[in-house]
């Protein structure tokens, strides 16, 4: 079992990166890899509540975030600096996430086997 960290650095809609990242995360978890997620920069916006992607013709992969626990994906880190930059609070986020400093995220990268950026 490998420890796999998936980083979301891009905004959720308008490109397929975020959806591909989440598909990759769920698929890896189905293959019993130990998957963790990091949200940074505009990628953070993936976690906002009250999104309605279907209204702009995008697939609603945001709802799938609610199933992360069932896929045993329990480690979700969000970048503290990005939270500040975008003026967001933890209760703006739809799933429980650990607000982490850059140093904590760097330490997490050291700890895992592979880091994939979407």
């Amino acid at each position: 079992m490998k420890k796999l960290c998936i980083v979301f650095k891009q905004a959720p809609h308008g490109t397929a990166h975020g959806r591909e990242g989440l598909d990759f995360a769920l698929l890896s978890a189905s293959f019993e890899q130990e998957v963790s997620l990091v949200f940074t920069g505009e990628g953070l916006l993936t976690l906002l509540k009250e999104q309605d992607p279907e209204s702009i013709g995008c697939k609603d992969y945001i709802s799938t975030l609610g199933a992360l626990g069932l896929y045993d994906i329990d480690t979700v880190l969000v970048c503290q600096e990005s939270m500040h930059e975008f003026n967001l609070q933890q209760n703006d986020l739809r799933i429980p996430a650990l607000v982490s400093s850059a140093e904590e995220i760097a330490a997490h990268f050291d700890h895992v086997d592979e880091v994939m950026v979407f």
Partner: peptide
């Protein structure tokens, strides 16, 4: 119901776990 809530079809491992719960 799983699909309507999470917008994804559950793979077998997840199905087993979710049904168990």
């Amino acid at each position: 119901e799983f699909y309507l809530e999470f917008k994804t079809s559950p793979a077998i491992r997840v199905l087993v776990k979710a049904i168990g719960q």
